[in-house]
Nucleic acid binder design. Structure first.
Lengths: 154, 154
DNA sequence: GTTTCATGTAATAATATATGTTACGTGATT
DNA sequence: AATCACGTAACATATATTATTACATGAAAC
């Protein structure tokens, strides 16, 4: 399978929207992300349902931000996306009654749970305002942090 | 994509092998795991190359353990498997020059790295002997830990 | 009221990966 | 020489993400 990049994508869109006032059409946002308008609508649907965004049809329509960036965390967005799978690894369960399998999967499961918990905790510690601030810092030539970034490129 | 369950599977096989002396054929191991002998050979190939297992052809051939369970960790096995992808999520990189994308991906990347680091650290703290001990505890009716286990079932 | 614009969504295609299966080659034992 | 077991390539199957096409819905503009 391919790596799921919806969270990265939707955050990219949100920060772009915050840079300009008016409603943004899916087509314009798709152009900025080199993808298809339908993909934009799809990943934004959950955020609309959870009240983070609003959408309007017809002339002058499009998407508008409906949340406070300083009070919205990456974890909120992750949940609005539908909580996509975090780990690429999982337990094999083809011998449910096997005590060996149970011992193996109990140990692995604890490690998996710990990793997921850390990721969600980190997500909860970063607001959209933090991301926007980092972006503006990069705009003015000072990157907020020594960036490693592309280790996790798709 | 489906979740990768090779680590869970190969650990299951290793612990089964430890319960009986002789060389174990891929066919016998496959039967215990409800899969195909070729799948066994495939996931065991890396462990053979790294010296954790030996294999022999011909009559009386099969797989034998070639490592010390008390000195081999889940992290060793994970590396021998070829370090499969840990996270199902990744960064989108369709606008490499975009500072918004860079800010988003830097933040996500740090969270991703932290989660991967925790998982590998946990793997490094558990030996095959630990797993085997837990299995034997379950055999005699006392599970070593209050197990949550199947949250991560395939 | 009709046209135009923009979202909503289903259906399909394209791509990638894990897993299962078949087929054939290689080497060791009987 | 025959049998056994691994080694590996090739192919099939299932699942998931992403992209694309097609059509319906609703709102604004004319």
């Amino acid at each position: 399978m391919k790596r799921d990049s919806r969270l990265s994508g939707v955050l990219h869109v949100l920060l772009h929207m915050a840079e300009q006032p008016g409603p943004h059409t899916s087509e314009a946002l798709a152009a900025a992300m080199a993808t298809n308008p339908v993909v934009i609508r799809r990943i934004m649907a959950g955020l609309r349902e959870q009240g983070f965004l609003r959408s309007q049809k017809g002339h002058g329509g499009g998407w508008t931000i409906a949340c406070d960036f300083s009070r919205t965390t990456l974890r909120d967005i992750y949940h609005a996306l539908g909580e996509p799978e975090i780990l690429a690894m999982g337990n094999r369960t083809d011998a449910p009654g096997c005590l060996v399998e149970q011992a193996v999967n109990a140990a692995l499961g604890q490690a998996f749970d710990a990793a997921e918990a850390i990721l969600l905790q980190r997500f909860g510690e970063v607001t959209l305002a933090d991301l926007s601030a980092d972006f503006h810092a990069r705009m003015s030539g000072r990157t907020a942090l020594p960036t490693l970034e592309n280790e996790h490129g798709s």
